[in-house]
Design a protein around this nucleic acid. Structure first.
Length: 334
DNA sequence: AATTCGGGCAACCGCCGCAGC
DNA sequence: AGCTGCGGCGGTTGCCCGAAT
């Protein structure tokens, strides 16, 4: 079945090329070109298979190959191209003069892939990671706040509070990511959003998920029960949650229209109307007299203009100092 | 100074698509 | 239509070298 591999011939050399072999190959190609890689090795006096010669030429000896580190521009271009083309290294190479597909592939696998992972971006989908392994980092982070590891109680308390806050931020971030990036996940988001209320019993899975995370955080922070947690969430964090719910619901409902209402503490905070795919969604504050809702409405209204299509960037403007919202964590989770 | 370990990268391998017969 | 030859592609391997122990 099929043909035999070109390198099946016994006695052909493999492995790294010597300077002498390089010289022979270059001289031959400069004189005669490379019409037939199959015949080239014999004609050039090389004990290699044609494939090996071609690879050596295209990946190393070609005169137009650029050497040295990838520039920031090249790096960005590779990431952009990868988000569109996927692992089409040769197609990417045509857009990067002087770079070979092999070089780009290696650079992606050894540098860029890791870089994206460290930034919390899935290198395959180029979207924020939704897998719960993100919480693995939490396990490493939180034990540092344990009393036993520190001599100064004040520092320990501060660290622990910071860790708790960080932990909450990560929980919210991941919930947002689940909401915004997993339309095919176990979460019945269509049902969730279609039911037009965040205080709806259909949120049970969401709540269950949240409790699991809270349990993880509590057990990580204190082996003897739950700790005193700050009662507020960063305002921008929650505002971003709203933005993303809005953007997500818009993307899911814009085709046939619909309405999404958001309730806080049992009080209707917002409703988003998407009558048709062509008309712009409207944002209506349900209880403008409420202070924290007023505050959030300001953010949400401004973002409403910009929240058009995915991908979302929920944390790009997160300000850790802005912890002014009196929206309760427990209320959010429960 | 010797050894181990891990990252980076060149090269290989296997498969695919296309063209010619 | 099926076979063969070939170039090309993407995944993987394994060597080399520098850092860490």
């Amino acid at each position: 079945m099929g043909r035999s591999p070109c390198c099946d011939e016994v006695g052909l050399k493999k492995g790294p090329w010597t300077p002498e072999e390089d010289k022979k190959l270059m001289e031959f190609i400069h004189k005669h070109g490379h019409e037939s890689w199959r015949r080239l090795p014999k004609l050039a006096g090389l004990n290699r298979c044609g494939k090996s010669c071609r690879l050596r030429w295209t990946n190393y000896l070609r005169p137009d190959i650029k050497r040295g580190k990838f520039s920031q521009e090249e790096e960005k271009l590779i990431i952009d191209l990868h988000s569109v083309l996927g692992n089409k290294w040769s197609a990417m190479a045509t857009r990067l003069p002087g770079r070979t597909d092999n070089e780009i592939k290696n650079y992606w696998n050894t540098h860029l892939r890791k870089k994206l992972l460290q930034m919390g971006i899935d290198p395959v989908t180029h979207r924020p990671r939704t897998d719960l392994n993100l919480f693995g980092g939490l396990r490493d982070l939180l034990p540092a706040a344990n009393f036993g590891n520190l001599s100064h109680l004040d520092n320990a308390l501060k660290l622990q509070a910071d860790a708790a806050l960080l932990a909450r931020l990560q929980v919210v971030q991941n919930l947002i990511q689940v909401l915004t990036n997993s339309p095919t996940s176990n979460l019945d988001l269509m049902g969730l959003l279609g039911s037009a209320s965040l205080g709806n019993p259909q949120l049970s899975y969401f709540q269950q998920l949240s409790r699991q995370y809270e349990g993880l955080i509590n057990s990580s922070l204190s082996p003897h029960g739950s700790i005193q947690m700050p009662s507020s969430l960063p305002n921008l964090g929650f505002q971003n949650l709203l933005n993303n719910i809005q953007a997500y619901s818009k993307s899911r409902l814009s085709l046939d229209g619909g309405e999404v209402a958001v309730q806080l503490d049992g009080v209707s905070a917002y409703s988003y109307s998407f009558p048709t795919s062509s008309s712009a969604p409207s944002l209506v504050p349900a209880s403008p007299e409420d202070n924290h809702i007023d505050q959030m409405q300001g953010h949400a209204t401004s973002s409403n203009v910009s929240s058009t299509t995915a991908p979302f960037e929920p944390w790009e403007d997160l300000n850790l100092d802005d912890i002014s919202s009196d929206f309760g964590w427990k209320d959010f989770l429960d």
